[in-house]
Lab assay of single mutants.
Amino acid sequence: QTQEFDNEEEARKAEKELRKENRRVTVTQENGRWRVTWD
Rank of each mutant, 00 (worst) to 15 (best):
Q29V: 12
V36L: 08
R33G: 04
E15S: 05
R35G: 01
T2V: 13
E21G: 11
T28Y: 10
E4H: 09
Q3L: 15
R24Y: 14
E4C: 14
D6R: 05
D6Q: 07
E15M: 08
R35W: 11
R33S: 06
L18T: 02
T28W: 13
R23D: 06
E10S: 09
K13A: 14
D39G: 10
L18K: 06
D39A: 08
T37Y: 10
E8F: 04
T26N: 07
L18R: 05
R12H: 05
K13I: 13
T26H: 09
N22E: 05
K13T: 11
T37I: 10
E17N: 10
E9D: 11
D6N: 09
R35A: 04
W34L: 00
E10Q: 09
E30D: 07
W34A: 00
T26F: 13
T2P: 04
Q29I: 10
A11P: 01
D39T: 11
D39Q: 11
N7V: 05
V25Y: 03
A14G: 02
E10H: 04
E10L: 08
A11I: 01
F5A: 01
N22S: 08
D39V: 12
R23I: 14
E17I: 12
L18P: 00
R23V: 14
R35M: 10
R24E: 11
Q29H: 14
K20D: 08
R19A: 11
E4R: 03
V36W: 01
V27A: 02
F5K: 00
V27N: 00
T2K: 05
T2D: 05
A14N: 03
N7F: 07
E9Q: 10
E17R: 13
D6V: 07
V27H: 01
E15H: 03
E8K: 03
E21L: 15
A11R: 01
V36I: 10
N7M: 05
T37G: 04
Q29T: 09
R12V: 04
R24Q: 10
E17T: 09
V36P: 01
N7L: 07
R35L: 13
E9I: 11
D39F: 15
Q1E: 11
N31F: 09
E15K: 02
W34V: 00
R23P: 08
W38T: 07
E21N: 13
Q1L: 11
E9H: 11
T26D: 05
R12N: 03
Q3D: 05
E30P: 02
T26R: 09
N22D: 06
T37M: 07
R24K: 10
T37K: 08
E8D: 02
K13V: 12
D39K: 05
V25F: 03
D6Y: 04
K13W: 13
E9C: 07
R12E: 03
N7R: 05
T26Q: 07
F5I: 01
G32Q: 04
E21Y: 14
T26P: 00
Q29F: 15
W38P: 03
R24M: 12
Q29L: 12
E4P: 02
N31Y: 06
T28H: 07
E21K: 13
N22W: 15
F5M: 02
A14T: 06
N7T: 15
T37A: 07
E9M: 11
V25D: 00
R35V: 13
R12T: 04
R33E: 02
R19F: 08
W34E: 00
F5H: 02
A11T: 02
F5P: 01
Q3G: 03
D39I: 12
G32L: 04
K13S: 09
N7K: 06
Q3H: 11
E15Q: 07
N22I: 04
E8P: 03
E8M: 04
E9A: 12
N31T: 03
R23L: 14
Q29N: 12
E30F: 12
V36F: 02
V36E: 00
T28D: 04
R35K: 12
G32M: 06
T37P: 00
N31I: 03
R33M: 11
R24T: 14
F5Y: 13
F5V: 01
E8G: 02
